[in-house]
Amino acid sequence: MIFHVEAYQQALPLKSVFRIARGAKTQADVVVVTLTADTDNAQLVGWAESVPYGRYNETVESVKQEINQFAQSLSAFDGDLAQLSDKIQALPGGSARNALDCAWWDLKAKSEQKSVADLLSLSTPSPCITAQTLSIDTPEAMAAAAKALGHPPLIKVKLDNQDIVPKMQAIHQASPESQFIVDANEGWSIHDLKACGDSLKALNVILIEQPLPADKDAELIDYSCPVPLCADESCHTRKELTYLKGRYDAVNIKLDKTGGLTEAHALAQEAQAMGFEIMLGCMVGSSLAMAPISLLSDCAKFVDLDGPLLIKTDRENGFDIEQGLMQPLNNALWGSPNSQIIL
């Protein structure tokens, strides 16, 4: 079987400036990959989207270069889909492998005339609650943004270590029936965490994501936080799970960290077996970037896949998200024999 790979850079403008503890941006810079198989009977094409992330020393250019080098290696490759998967899995984890792996799954669905959910023996996803995200701003601006969401069930709040409690008090007052996930993006100290834990619990905060830098996780040993803690930047693949035990209660699984759906699925299974709660997360991207990870929603306690709500224009056949309720993947987008590639 002959395979071809193409990588495309796309800039997706955001609805507004998106701020987290380590910076701000006005557009999502993504890489879209198409993976084509020339068979005796037809030409089949799978596709996927990844989001290069500077936190892991990735740029669009570096990810495209890695994908293009992989594409060049296929000139001497004459194998089947299973052998191609082995070749993809040999790449280092990250955005490049994510795009290739997820494009491979879309291609496999078309080759075998089965959905990816069926290929992985997953139940058909049900509608689920996804968090909707507030970026960092003043207490007043964040309260106004929370109110504008219309009191959704779950709000994710990006917070640095400035005015943690006053900001959450303002947000809680604006949306008192909502529950909250607070995401510090490694921006706090252990002192910050200890100082605000009880107050955050009283404000309907049900999870705190990555409060400390990834290299400071040892400070969480023997600390019993009033709010469960979730590892994000500290958890990429199954390799970190033993280290994270005793430090975190949950792990945030993101495709651009795991290097694709193959490892994400394995990570979810092993993390659950070890007693971790599962959170599904995303970088800021289109529905195409969310599609593969959404198939794992039935095993997750927390879902944070609102990336498409942050960009001005989503892809055709994207996710339907209303008042925090996320409908299952549209088979026309990705992961089925009928998915359509619309660049």
Score class of each variant (00 low, 15 high):
90 A>G: 09
179 Q>G: 09
163 D>Y: 05
173 Q>C: 06
167 K>F: 03
104 W>I: 10
107 L>A: 09
126 S>L: 14
89 Q>T: 10
129 I>A: 03
164 I>S: 04
176 P>S: 13
95 S>D: 04
150 G>H: 07
143 A>D: 02
101 D>V: 13
110 K>V: 06
131 A>I: 01
178 S>N: 09
118 D>Y: 03
106 D>M: 09
111 S>N: 12
107 L>G: 05
114 K>L: 15
179 Q>Y: 08
153 P>K: 14
99 A>K: 07
149 L>D: 06
136 I>V: 07
173 Q>K: 15
93 G>E: 13
154 L>W: 00
146 A>H: 03
133 T>A: 07
146 A>T: 02
125 P>F: 07
174 A>N: 00
113 Q>M: 13
174 A>Q: 01
115 S>G: 14
170 A>N: 08
154 L>T: 02
129 I>C: 14
119 L>M: 13
99 A>N: 04
135 S>Q: 05
147 K>N: 09
103 A>P: 12
175 S>D: 09
136 I>C: 02
126 S>A: 14
179 Q>L: 10
109 A>N: 09
131 A>G: 12
147 K>M: 10
157 V>T: 01
156 K>T: 07
124 T>Q: 13
98 N>T: 14
132 Q>Y: 06
108 K>L: 15
123 S>L: 11
165 V>C: 08
151 H>T: 14
120 L>N: 03
98 N>V: 07
95 S>N: 10
117 A>I: 05
109 A>S: 15
159 L>V: 05
127 P>H: 11
110 K>T: 07
138 T>Y: 05
95 S>P: 10
95 S>W: 09
149 L>P: 06
123 S>Y: 01
129 I>H: 08
150 G>D: 05
158 K>L: 02
159 L>Y: 02
177 E>G: 11
164 I>R: 01
176 P>C: 09
95 S>C: 11
151 H>P: 04
103 A>F: 07
177 E>N: 15
171 I>G: 00
97 R>L: 12
140 E>L: 13
